[in-house]
Nucleic acid binder design. Structure first.
Lengths: 201, 201
DNA sequence: TCATTATGAATGATCATTCATTCATGATAT
DNA sequence: ATATCATGAATGAATGATCATTCATAATGA
């Protein structure tokens, strides 16, 4: 009996979940197909029915992981206090990315992007989306006139993204880096990028 | 004729330089000993006279790369304008780490630290040194009384480090990220962590 | 029964590591 | 000065392990 499209997606997801567990502890390249077999309870041959190669598993995984990040931003609420919304989202994103082996996966993705053009392309695409999204939010801030941006929208967006990425990755080597206690500092730094219309620069 | 201690160090350095070239383009795990042979013009057997294993080459390389970072900070000048010195050093460090395949190597190091306890230990050690060094500079700022820290010393140090790391790594996936145009934003963010004594918080 | 899914041993490639051998150079003896 | 030796440096083919991938076969179920 042929599997429905839906069931196929489910199977793939199952494999990717197993792969993720392996990737966290061994990284992309030290994870073997057999590791993924063990973790998913599937045979090697069967995994190859759903993915053409190990490479494709890594790619699909990267897509999924990065997709997560952009959807997280997508519902950046269009609240009256847009600045607070940005700070909250940045903080929440960092906090979420710091749980459950996520920092390790992020490091793996950066490293892979550095040498694998396909992963790099995927990452770039999502990153551009992310920047665009943040810029839109910044535009909204400018338009409502309560605050002035002290720098270019693009630059501000990149800096916020970098700050979050940096915090997440540093968690790997500094396990007692507690994001909660960082909140006030993050708030100060992000807020400093804006000024009241009167004072300007 | 036995090689002098000095010559041995030189040989090792030669191998590490070749390894670095390979690591940039293929990462630690896709680099083979033969790649390093080709790049260094040495035979496999000979390389094993200087390093016990590929693992040890990676470790030695990590040491060297991280050492660089701490020495860069070590001569954080004890200038009258300590705040400016910190901003300058952060900026200069980021700018330097963004050249010549360094972002790729940094990503590789983070990824490796996430799964290899020996690399993680090395990285943690250097990171602690870095934080200590920055905290000392912050203490000096507090002592001379011209500025007040708006947050804990440790937190400020970690945030600055994270910001720099994040910028460096984002360079990998955003090749038109130009650190020069980021300078004013970095300056704003770092400066925001301090206040004049009068206003305080 | 037959179409499809699943298995897992077999295949072939790649690699880290080893080791028998060669090479280079300085010391020693004539 | 020349020939011989000794020592450690360097080579690169061979070894053995590990893996991604394939495929002949079995299970499943409509």
């Amino acid at each position: 009996m042929k599997l429905s499209e839906h069931k196929i997606v489910e199977k793939k997801a199952e494999i990717l979940t197993a792969a993720q567990v392996c990737f966290v502890e061994k990284g992309f390249h030290n994870t073997t197909i057999n590791d993924i077999c063990r973790e998913s309870g599937m045979s090697a041959g069967n995994i190859y029915r759903y993915f053409d190669s190990k490479e494709m598993i890594i790619e699909a995984f990267a897509m999924e992981e990065l997709q997560w990040m952009t959807t997280a931003i997508k519902d950046l609420p269009s609240s009256p206090d847009m600045l607070q919304a940005i700070v909250d989202t940045a903080f929440w994103t960092a906090a979420t990315l710091m749980r459950e082996g996520r920092p390790e996966l992020n490091a793996e993705l950066f490293a892979e992007a550095g040498r694998n053009p396909r992963i790099s392309a995927i990452y770039s695409k999502f990153n551009r989306q992310l920047i665009t999204e943040i810029c839109l939010a910044l535009e909204e801030i400018e338009n409502n006139g309560l605050l002035v941006l002290r720098h270019e929208r693009q630059s501000i967006a990149m800096l916020i993204i970098s700050l979050v990425d940096g915090l997440v990755l540093n968690q790997i080597i500094n396990t007692d880096l507690d994001i909660m206690t960082m909140r006030p500092v993050i708030e100060t730094m992000v807020t400093s990028l804006f000024a009241k219309p009167a004072e300007d620069r």
